[in-house]
Design a protein around this nucleic acid. Structure first.
Lengths: 124, 124
DNA sequence: TTAATAGTTGGAGTGTACTCTAAGTCAAGG
DNA sequence: CCTTGACTTAGAGTACACTCCAACTATTAA
């Protein structure tokens, strides 16, 4: 599968796909005889995961670290587990933060719904 | 209240507080006769809200836009409401993204829990 | 009175994550 | 054969959100 197809499937730029590979967030993709990337199903799995993790805000260097451990083989299960747990906890906190902000926004929104109708903003 | 106190209460750097004011994310804080910031309760409200919104990921320029509308007065209720709703929707999507990633991480974590015990990673 | 401490400003510098550019290669269609 | 278009690389440039710095001023304790 070409980089163009992958970029269309996942709605991500070709530059970003090359960047993810260059920094080591995903394993090196095989090239055909003319040096063009040919993504395998496995590559797609890595791409998919990378995009998922990044869109939730996991830092690039953490994902790079994960791939590095992965490439070191079975000796690194524990380290990979710790890394994943660590990111899991951070995401829980981030979700909690979002929940608080949603509440605050919701409160403000309801005040403005009224303000738009009545022409004035109540209580402070 | 001094900038030092505010920074300690909210656990944010003085530089960041000054930055938020400089870019217009919060209103200008009054200075005493020696030119030093003296935060009022109202200022603290703005600071608090700014920190909350930023920590959920709302962009600085959106918060700047909000304050700009706020300063323009009652004519901008509708615009402020739209802006807030817009950010609310984006946060809902972001939370959904985090939920998906948490699920994925959870799946990986449970596989690694087993891998750490058995010494090998099952299914793929 | 002087030294330390805490604040001020404008502007430069940094880290993160892309995003773009230039120069080149290759395969296919006219 | 030659052009077009999709790909390649290394490396430069950009956007965002701080973060740091230099030079300065004001207050307080010794």
């Amino acid at each position: 599968m070409t980089i163009k197809q992958v970029s269309e499937i996942y709605n991500i730029s070709q530059d970003t796909l090359r960047y993810y590979e260059k920094v080591g967030m995903i394993p090196t993709v095989n090239r055909n005889k003319s040096g063009i990337r040919d993504y395998t199903e496995q590559d797609l799995d890595w791409v998919q995961t990378a995009i998922c993790m990044r869109s939730a805000g996991l830092p690039v260097d953490v994902l790079v670290q994960y791939l590095k451990l992965y490439k070191q083989g079975d000796e690194t299960f524990k380290q990979r587990l710790d890394l994943l747990k660590n990111q899991y906890d951070k995401l829980l906190k981030q979700r909690e933060q979002i929940n608080q902000t949603l509440e605050k926004l919701n409160y403000k929104i309801s005040r403005y719904e009224i303000a738009v109708k009545t022409g004035k903003l109540s209580w402070d």
